[in-house]
């Protein structure tokens, strides 16, 4: 464990807690894409299949449970909570996320480190995580009004993967034979997808104006 990875995990944890806090306190999911949340639940479900078989550390198991629990409860809130669901804008959140799931599954079947069910599922979760934010970014472009919590949520989500890239660089130089091209490339693609959001986020923060994404 290194500081970059720990900071990345804490940033990732903060992003889901910000989202849960928003939904739980103001009972609203305005501006949040259910599609992205469903994709994230699928990412965690397919990545943490080894939850009960491989014990790595208490920290690892605990964080997996938190991420699984939070992502599924966010999906539950937006889908079924009688108050929260009313603020879900399904007419705007129309990204056909099946168009993301299938290509990621096919790619995972073609490009993976080992052709076993667990490994293909793990690779699928990596590819899917890289593109899972797209419905959310599309929704932000459409609705234009980004409230602070949603902006913070997306920012933290992007920052966590950027910290993970530093972690991979650190591990590459400190651990012999630590090479995971698939992880590195999908993590890089994921971070690049946030690049323009980061740009506008910093612009709005620097000029102290409300965050607006260009149409």
């Amino acid at each position: 464990m290194n500081i970059f990875r720990f900071a990345g995990d804490m940033t990732h944890l903060a992003s889901v807690l910000v989202l849960l806090l928003k939904i739980h306190t103001i009972k609203s999911c305005a501006g949040i894409s259910l599609k992205t949340q469903e994709l994230y639940a699928l990412v965690f479900a397919t990545r943490y299949l080894d939850l009960f078989t491989d014990y790595i550390s208490l920290y690892n198991t605990l964080m997996k449970l938190i991420f699984l629990g939070s992502s599924f409860s966010i999906v539950w809130y937006i889908r079924y909570h009688k108050i929260v669901r009313r603020s879900y804008d399904k007419d705007q959140d129309t990204f056909r996320h099946y168009f993301l799931v299938l290509p990621c599954l096919l790619l995972a079947l073609l490009i993976n480190e080992k052709f076993t069910f667990r490994e293909v599922m793990w690779t699928f979760s990596l590819y899917l995580e890289a593109v899972a934010i797209l419905p959310q970014l599309v929704l932000l472009q459409r609705t234009r009004n980004i409230d602070n919590l949603t902006g913070q949520y997306v920012f933290l989500l992007g920052a966590y993967r950027a910290l993970y890239i530093l972690n991979w660089i650190y591990r590459y130089f400190t651990e012999p034979h630590y090479v995971h091209w698939i992880t590195w490339i999908s993590g890089l693609v994921q971070t690049l997808l946030y690049a323009d959001f980061f740009y506008y986020y910093f612009q709005s923060w620097k000029n102290n104006v409300k965050l607006e994404l260009p149409a």
Partner: peptide, 10 residues
């Protein structure tokens, strides 16, 4: 012994 799977990251 802890099985150190190659995927020790979250």
């Amino acid at each position: 012994t802890q099985k150190r799977s190659s995927h020790d990251e979250l």
